[in-house]
């Protein structure tokens, strides 16, 4: 993959590195833009599988990147299923069994509701600045907006994706496209973000498309119906007891 960047650099002579802003600072701004103290989000996940397309609706309450609570609303089959993330632990509650099962080990690798996202992907820390070192390697225009091409390399060993490339809107500091790579440099997953809206003082993508590139298929769409930042989230949601309620 690296040689593509080199190729890109050769074909589109851009100002030298020194003229780019600091990658880490850009990444920090992206983090600030996408993350908040709390988030309440209502969303739809549109899953394109080989055979059909399904839509799963859910509502999530998130606090920082450590605690999250999700309740599924539709379809009827998933309604009432709840998920709780506290630090790096994940529990799932299914109303039909009235049991709370901790999702761990192997199960974390399963896809969420049949999507191209795994539980692990969902568990991932949202703040990238802590995990990755960032460097800007170029600029590119996507959908008429000029983006920094940000190359991220993991600072630690235990990060799921060793490196990422992110196309960040130079003005709004939101990623428009992201690619996740294996340690070997092989492309594993792609994300495309679009339909940016300004909410308060930040820009947020209302539509995302995830794609596991090794697998054939049309990937998974994630559509935000409504999102609120920094509203009060009741503390009681972040307990296992809340799952049964």
């Amino acid at each position: 993959m690296k040689f593509i960047f080199i190729l890109a650099l050769l074909l589109f002579p851009v100002p030298l590195h020194a003229q780019f802003p600091d990658g880490a600072a850009v990444l920090e701004k992206v983090d600030q833009n996408l993350n908040s103290t709390t988030q309440v989000i209502r969303s739809k996940m549109i899953i394109h599988s080989r055979r059909d397309t399904r839509t799963v609706e859910s509502k999530s309450w998130t606090e920082g990147d450590k605690r999250a609570y999700t309740e599924y609303l539709a379809p009827a089959r998933e309604k009432g299923t709840k998920m709780l993330k506290i630090q790096d632990q994940l529990w799932m509650y299914s109303p039909s069994t009235d049991r709370i099962i901790q999702i761990s080990g192997h199960m974390l690798r399963q896809s969420v509701m049949g999507s191209d996202l795994s539980y692990e992907d969902m568990m991932e820390d949202q703040r990238l600045a802590g995990l990755y070192g960032a460097e800007i390697i170029g600029t590119e225009i996507i959908d008429g907006r000029t983006c920094w091409i940000l190359h991220l390399v993991a600072k630690k060993d235990d990060v799921a994706y060793h490196s990422r490339t992110m196309w960040v809107d130079q003005e709004r500091y939101v990623p428009m496209k992201e690619e996740l790579y294996a340690k070997s440099g092989k492309l594993l997953k792609k994300t495309e973000l679009s339909d940016f809206r300004q909410i308060n003082d930040r820009w947020y993508p209302m539509h995302m498309r995830f794609k596991d590139v090794l697998k054939t298929g049309d990937g998974t769409e994630f559509v935000v119906d409504s999102i609120e930042f920094n509203t009060a989230v009741p503390e009681h949601l972040f307990s296992k007891a809340a799952l049964r309620r």
């Binding site: 899953i47 799963v56 089959r77 039909s96 069994t97 399963q110 969420v112 509701m113 049949g114």
Partner: peptide, 16 residues
């Protein structure tokens, strides 16, 4: 016992 499996659509399925 609870069976934790995966539905034909790939969702996690649980049943007692």
């Amino acid at each position: 016992l609870t069976l934790i499996g995966s539905t034909m659509h790939g969702s996690m399925a649980m049943q007692n």
